[in-house]
Design a protein around this nucleic acid. Structure first.
Lengths: 158, 158
DNA sequence: TCCGATCATCAGCGGTGCTGACGATCATAG
DNA sequence: CTATGATCGTCAGCACCGCTGATGATCGGA
C-alpha cells in the first residue's frame, strides 16, 4: 500500500497519511489548480474565471445563477464578474424584468476567448493526466464524477 | 460524457468545463480539505498540521526535512511548527551537531494526539469515499497515486 | 580566513472561500 | 396602497493556503 515514495520512513504513521486518498486528492487539487492557472495565463484567466465565462456563454444569466451553476459564492462572483468586465470579456446589463439582477453577457472578445481558452485547457489537462493511459483516464473521470456528485459545493439547495 | 448534472445547459462548453477531470480534481481537493479539517477540529489541527505531526513522529527532524517529506514550503513550516508548539504537541530543540537546525520533537501529548487524530481521519475518509465501493476506492487510490508521483510538490530536487 | 550554501525567520503578496451587514428591489399579504 | 419578508448585488473583513525575496546565523570547504 506504499504508493508514495518517501526517502525515509520514520513510522508507518507517516506513510499512512501521505498515501491516504484524501491527502492525495487535496494535493492533486492544488496541483490541478496550478496547472490550469498556468495554462490560462495568456488570457489572464484563472480556472474559476473560465468556468464562469463558459457558463455565461449564450443567454444572459444573473450572478446568482452563475454562482449556482459553477458552485461559487454570491460574494465571490462579484469579484469574478468585476474582473471579466475589466478584461473586456463580459459586461453587466440590468435585467429590466427584475431590476435587482444583472444579466452577465459575454462580449465578442469574451466569446472568442472562451473557445481558445477551453482548447488550451484541454491540452493542459491532457498533459496533466499523461501518466495514465486513455482507459485509465476515463476510469478516473468516472470515479471522480461519482464523488463529485455527492461533494460538489455547487449542489446547493436550489 | 456528461457526468455532472447541471440544471440547465446553456452550451456544450459549460458541460465541458465542469465535467473536466482537472476541474473535478480541483473542487474535490477543496472538498477533501474541508472534510479533513472538520474531522480534525477537535484537536485544532488541519490536515497540514497532522501531516507534519505524523512525519515528525519518532526521531527529531529539522523543519527543512519535514518540509521535504510533506511537500511543504520552508516558510510555511515555520507557522505550522509555531502552532504545534503553541498547542503543546511538539517543541523545537537546537541540533547541537548543526546549530542552524531545529529538531522538532513530539511531546507526549503530541504522540497521543497523532494516533487519535489519524484514527479519526481514516473514519472521515471512509465517509468521504463512501459513494464508491471498496474495489473502486482501491482503484481510485491507485490512479491518484500514479498522478501524485508526477505532480507531488514534495518531489523536490532533494 | 573567506565565500558559498543551508537553515530558520519575517514581511508581503495572490488566490480561494466564507460570514455578516447593507441598500435596493420584488412579491405577497393584509 | 402599504407593510413585510425574501432575493440580489455589494462591501468589509476574516481564514486558509502557498509562495517570493530579504535577512541573519551557521556550516563547510577552498
Amino acid at each position: 500500500m506504499t504508493y508514495v515514495a518517501l526517502m525515509r520512513e520514520p513510522t508507518p504513521a507517516a506513510q499512512l497519511v501521505t498515501s491516504a486518498t484524501s491527502h492525495m486528492m487535496l494535493r492533486l487539487g492544488d496541483a490541478a489548480r496550478a496547472v490550469i492557472g498556468n495554462a490560462l495565463d495568456s488570457w489572464s484567466l484563472t480556472g474559476r474565471d473560465l468556468r464562469v465565462l463558459s457558463v455565461a456563454h449564450g443567454e444572459g444569466l444573473s450572478q446568482r445563477e452563475l454562482g449556482r451553476l459553477t458552485g461559487m459564492d454570491r460574494t465571490t462572483m462579484v469579484a469574478v464578474v468585476d474582473k471579466l468586465e475589466r478584461l473586456g470579456y463580459a459586461h453587466r446589463e440590468r435585467d429590466l424584468a427584475d431590476r435587482r439582477k444583472y444579466l452577465v453577457r459575454l462580449t465578442d472578445a469574451g466569446t472568442k476567448v472562451v473557445d481558445e481558452a477551453l482548447d488550451q485547457l484541454s491540452k493542459a489537462e491532457a498533459e496533466f493526466l499523461s501518466p495514465l493511459n486513455a482507459a485509465e483516464q476515463r476510469q478516473l473521470n468516472r470515479l471522480l464524477a461519482r464523488l463529485y456528485e455527492k461533494h460538489d459545493p455547487a449542489c446547493d439547495p436550489l
